[in-house]
């Protein structure tokens, strides 16, 4: 089983950035790189080589789904699992993001003290699936 240590986090709102970074690094012990836009994230991904990308859906300029598709076109980043974060938690919208290929969707606002656990659970679930498919 592979582990999740490095997270690339894409979010335009500085407040939420700080809180999430704190939640992921201090509470969760992850290594986090924050990007404020989709463009920046696309530039940084190859250097940082994250295990997981955490992507806000609604951003000015390039939004989450567009960034997602661009990641999928990058040879290096194409296989990195992506989790969306969104305040829209209609079941149909979640289904839509999953249909794009996101491994899960985290609802905003998130609880800073449990965000890291949420990500670990998502990761473990995925690992089990991958393992299952390999069998």
């Amino acid at each position: 089983m592979s582990t999740c240590q490095r997270i690339l986090y894409v979010e335009d709102e500085p407040d939420i950035q700080t809180v999430a970074k704190l939640a992921l690094e201090m509470v969760g012990g992850f290594t986090v790189k924050t990007c404020s836009s989709g463009e920046e994230a696309l530039d940084e991904a190859a250097d940082f080589m994250p295990d997981l990308i955490l992507l806000d859906v609604m951003m000015p300029g390039m939004d989450g789904p567009t960034t997602f598709n661009r990641f999928r076109e990058q040879p290096i980043a194409a296989k990195i699992p992506i989790v969306f974060m969104t305040a829209k938690i209609q079941p149909s919208e979640i289904a839509y993001y999953k249909s794009l290929g996101a491994i899960d969707v985290i609802a905003k606002p998130f609880d800073p003290m449990t965000l890291a656990d949420q990500i670990r659970i998502i990761w473990e679930k995925r690992e089990q699936n991958v393992h299952f498919q390999a069998m």
Binding site: E13, V19, P109
Partner: peptide, 14 residues
């Protein structure tokens, strides 16, 4: 719209 969206998210988190 954008500002309200941001604010709504921050309010939830804080």
């Amino acid at each position: 719209h954008h500002r309200l969206h941001k604010l709504s998210g921050s309010c939830g988190t804080f």
